[in-house]
């Protein structure tokens, strides 16, 4: 049931909140370096799917396999360690630590994985340069614009050398010009570093930066690329 060569794959996921099913037999897969957009109307289950794939919530049933390992069967501590080492996250807003400077924020995943401060900040600055925000290193998140903050967040997601980035409406709080630039930089950087991206969005213009799209409707994921 796991597609050949996939890095992260879910099969027949079910998740219910109270009596409301959020996922009702959803399946999904992403290959290394591939950008997949997860689309669907509000309340269709797309964020629940992303949270299950990232190991943040556990599905009621179904399997999630990451690099040949069963994510849903891992002990919590192991899953948390995996999230730190292999996964990066970009959310709509509010993800940067306000007390830290931008470069300290970007260096954070490396510091948490035991990299020394100087080396971590050097790597952080390289990613900030890639995302065109290297001049903001000393500023705090409250002092930069929304678009700049999102680029810092993308740099942070990439700095820890993840294998998968989970991006939940990463441009949701930005105007279209800034949103498009963030998508351009995120997808370019991810593709060149062979990082897979799971991108949740309800905007078609944002989804158009992906290689493939999957639609979630009533808790079921449909991959139409191969159906038409």
């Amino acid at each position: 049931m796991i597609p050949d060569g996939s890095l992260l794959a879910a099969h027949d996921l079910r998740k219910t909140y109270g009596s409301t099913p959020a996922l009702d037999g959803a399946s999904f897969s992403v290959h290394p370096g591939e950008v997949v957009a997860v689309m669907g109307p509000s309340g269709s289950g797309k964020s629940t799917l992303l949270h299950c794939l990232a190991g943040i919530i556990t599905p009621d049933s179904g399997t999630i396999t990451y690099a040949g390992r069963e994510l849903s069967a891992m002990p919590d501590a192991e899953r948390s360690a995996l999230r730190r080492s292999d996964f990066g996250f970009v959310f709509q807003f509010g993800q940067l630590v306000p007390e830290l400077t931008c470069v300290e924020n970007v260096a954070l995943p490396l510091r948490l994985n035991g990299v020394r401060r100087k080396a971590a900040e050097r790597t952080a600055l390289e990613w900030m340069e890639r995302l065109e925000v290297d001049d903001l290193g000393a500023q705090r998140p409250g002092e930069v614009s929304g678009g700049q903050g999102q680029r810092v967040a993308v740099a942070r997601a990439l700095a820890g050398s993840p294998k998968v980035i989970f991006a939940d409406e990463p441009t949701g709080a930005l105007d279209s010009l800034n949103g498009e630039r963030v998508m351009e930089l995120l997808t370019e950087a991810a593709r060149s570093a062979n990082v897979a991206v799971v991108l949740v969005t309800h905007e078609a213009r944002v989804a158009a930066y992906s290689d493939r799209d999957v639609t979630v409707r009533d808790g079921r994921a449909r991959d139409l690329e191969h159906a038409v």
Binding site: R205, A207, A208, Y209, D213, L224, E225, A227, V228
Partner: peptide, 12 residues
């Protein structure tokens, strides 16, 4: 759904 997919392909 098929039309949506064709549109997204063109947008890509």
């Amino acid at each position: 759904d098929a039309q949506r997919s064709a549109h997204l392909r063109m947008m890509r």
